[in-house]
């Protein structure tokens, strides 16, 4: 097997550290892989390997990571953050990484669909005709949720509408998160 060596730089880790209140904890990682050991996704799918993702963040492999579709495999169970012996906020930093991926247009299709519903209704599971009649049959009250126009306006102000409309470059299947623990 051919090993690929990467040029190491610390720009990316500094960028990530600034994007989160506890982002500087990234620097405490000593690559023990306790996070990967407890990750429920890694147990079954080695393409998602938190230890390796953190290594990529530490060594500056920004371009590779933000275009990696596998960074979205996380269930956000936060086990990694809980067990890290160094207090690295692993799950939070991975969310920061995904924010950068989103800016680069790397967003999975199911989330694009979810955003569409959120922008239209202010909810991610919107009531259908079936729901409405089922609720009525069960004697449940009518739902009085937020005015979708207010949610849409808020999302416009936040730049979220523009952000999620971005198209990413075509992504390659195999990438940085995978491999051995």
């Amino acid at each position: 097997m051919v090993e690929t060596y990467h040029e190491i730089n610390s720009r990316f880790r500094r960028e990530l550290a600034e994007l989160h209140e506890e982002g500087e904890t990234l620097n405490f990682c000593y690559q023990c892989a306790t996070c990967s050991g407890i990750c429920p996704v890694f147990r079954y799918n080695p393409k998602y390997n938190p230890r390796k993702l953190v290594e990529g963040m530490l060594t500056g492999r920004k371009e590779e990571l933000i275009h990696d579709p596998n960074i979205w495999l996380c269930t956000v169970c936060h086990n990694c953050t809980e067990v890290c012996p160094q207090g690295v906020r692993v799950s939070e930093l991975l969310a920061v990484l995904r924010n950068l991926a989103t800016k680069a247009g790397n967003v999975p299709e199911h989330l694009k669909a979810e955003v569409k519903v959120l922008l239209e209704t202010g909810l991610v599971n919107a009531p259908s005709k079936v729901t409405v009649s089922r609720r009525a049959k069960m004697g449940l009250p009518e739902l009085k949720t937020a005015d979708p126009a207010e949610i849409r306006a808020l999302l416009e102000h936040l730049g979220f509408v523009k952000l999620t409309a971005k198209e990413g470059k075509a992504v390659k299947e195999e990438s940085g998160g995978g491999g051995q623990q």
Binding site: H20, W72, C74, T75, V76, A95, V96, R98, N99, A101, T102, V107, H110, L111, E114, V115, L118, G122, L123, V124, N125, P141, K144, T145, A146, D147, I151, L154, L155, L158, F160, L163, T164
Partner: peptide, 29 residues
Amino acid sequence: KDVAGFSCCPEPIGTPGLDITTWVTLAAR
């Protein structure tokens, strides 16, 4: 009590991945 006017919380798996600030802002609303 039933209170009118809540939106999606929004869900804590995909939304913070898209944009943490948006996630917290909708929650704060």
